[in-house]
């Protein structure tokens, strides 16, 4: 669509800038240097610093299973977020889970999909509240939630053909 047409030239520019920055600053040595996208896996984080306890990165096909597990634990889905990592050529989908009532424990589940083919299964079967969040993420980023019952324009007018929160978005 409109947004993806201007993609290839900009991508290179951003990569260069980003590479230069990392060479100079290098703030958190180990984690950032080795590879830009993180390996899948489980990471315990410092709540006082980050605001969540557990940070999990999974494959796209494990997203629904993770939602089911957390649902059986009695957690609630707080929000679904997309992040556009233009330099990696990837979208990141972030799911926040927490308990409403009971103990304080926040879990972040994230997965990465290819920017050219952003398909991820929907969790709206598990959590009804994810329906609107996913629809919004689809609308603003163009991330395709496979199996979603109603991927239609939500916040923007029905006839618009752009994904405004993509980093290469230009009106």
């Amino acid at each position: 669509m409109l947004a993806s047409e201007g993609l290839p030239p900009q991508k290179e520019v951003v990569e260069e800038v980003q590479a230069a920055e990392e060479g100079e600053v290098d703030p958190k040595a180990k984690k950032k240097e080795e590879e830009k996208p993180r390996e899948n896996g489980l990471l315990e984080t410092d709540y006082a610093k980050r605001g969540f306890h557990l940070d999990v990165q999974v494959n796209p096909d494990q997203v629904v299973r993770s939602a089911e597990i957390l649902d059986s634990e009695g957690m609630t889905m707080e929000m679904v977020t997309g992040v556009d990592w233009l330099k990696d050529g990837q979208f990141e989908i972030v799911y926040d889970y927490s308990f409403t009532g009971g103990e304080l424990f926040r879990v972040v589940v994230r997965c990465r999909v290819d920017r050219e083919k952003p398909d991820v299964p929907t969790i709206s079967e598990v959590f009804g509240g994810a329906n609107w969040h996913e629809r919004e993420t689809w609308e603003l980023f163009g991330i395709n939630f496979v199996g979603h019952p109603q991927l239609e324009r939500f916040l923007l007018p029905d006839d618009c053909d752009y994904y405004p929160l993509r980093k290469d978005f230009k009106l």
Partner: peptide, 22 residues
Amino acid sequence: PPKGDYHFAVEAARGTFSMRTV
């Protein structure tokens, strides 16, 4: 702020308002 993502939640008049920033 250092690289990474952050989350903070407060109780607003209508419920949990939380912000997540990268």
